[in-house]
């Protein structure tokens, strides 16, 4: 059981961003992808989730053996893939409570209604754990939220939707240290044998809180190096130049 990315190539317009990327995240593990700006990290996240602006030219993304590339974005989600956005979208007039309810309702068979009492109980418990004020349920999704509130709201959605694989795209960006701790605790609470995580980050800092099993380094649309958590520390201390040189030498 894994999230498996196989020789993935993808373009936006005429520009190739992902250039034959291979990566395997077994269920129950936390993998991190680090890389410089422009290396294709966020593109990878969006391509996996089926964003319509990207064109996949070859390769595949398999979620427990099922190809995600054949699916609409909403099917990818219901199949178990969650993407925590780097820039979560604002949906004016749609409350968090109604939004999550619609998302959960979409997972039920036709004709079955969500149990409202159980839903709110679950929602409030998870909001409390993430230190999100309960009044947020009646606020519009991300509308007028601070950066930290948006990211906590992403983790709340993840906790409610219980994905089998979650991709966290730069979840640490824009967070102060307190918010970072809360968000990390939220992620760590979901760690377990039933969930795989792919944590995309620019900085090593996040990985002090969400300790990865494997760290991958992405350069120019490919994974060029993988290692344990010490790799993140080395990147933090020495930068990316040495990885790029090694990658160039290997090519």
């Amino acid at each position: 059981m894994s999230l498996s990315i196989q020789n993935l190539r993808a373009n936006i317009g005429d520009r190739e961003i992902l250039k034959g990327l291979n990566l395997e995240v077994p269920k129950g593990e936390v993998h991190a992808i680090m890389g410089k700006n422009g290396s294709g990290k966020s593109t990878l996240a969006k391509v996996m989730a089926g964003h319509p602006s990207y064109e996949v030219t070859s390769g595949d993304v398999l979620l427990d053996g099922r190809s995600l590339l054949e699916m609409e974005p909403d099917e990818c989600s219901r199949s178990g893939l969650f993407l925590a956005f780097q820039y979560p979208m604002e949906i004016p007039g749609v409350t968090i409570a109604n939004f999550l309810r619609a998302a959960l309702q979409a997972r039920l068979p036709e004709g079955e209604e969500i149990d409202a009492v159980a839903y709110y109980k679950d929602l409030y418990a998870k909001m409390d754990a993430l230190k999100i004020d309960r009044s947020f349920t009646s606020r519009s999704v991300n509308d007028g939220f601070s950066g930290g509130e948006k990211k906590r709201c992403e983790i709340l959605q993840m906790a409610m939707l219980k994905p089998s694989y979650a991709v966290l795209d730069e979840t640490d960006s824009g967070l102060d240290i307190d918010a970072l701790k809360i968000v990390s605790e939220g992620v760590n609470a979901l760690r377990g044998p039933d969930t795989g995580f792919l944590v995309i980050t620019h900085y090593q800092r996040l990985l002090n809180y969400i300790v990865p099993d494997v760290v991958h380094v992405m350069v120019d649309g490919r994974i060029v190096l993988s290692g344990d958590k010490s790799l993140a520390l080395k990147l933090e201390a020495e930068g990316y130049d040495w990885v790029e040189k090694e990658a160039a030498a290997a090519a």
């Binding site: 609409e72 959605q157 939707l161």
Partner: peptide, 10 residues
């Protein structure tokens, strides 16, 4: 796309 990523059909 954001809403679809949460499982809500288009």
């Amino acid at each position: 796309f954001y809403m679809q990523q949460r499982g809500i059909p288009e």
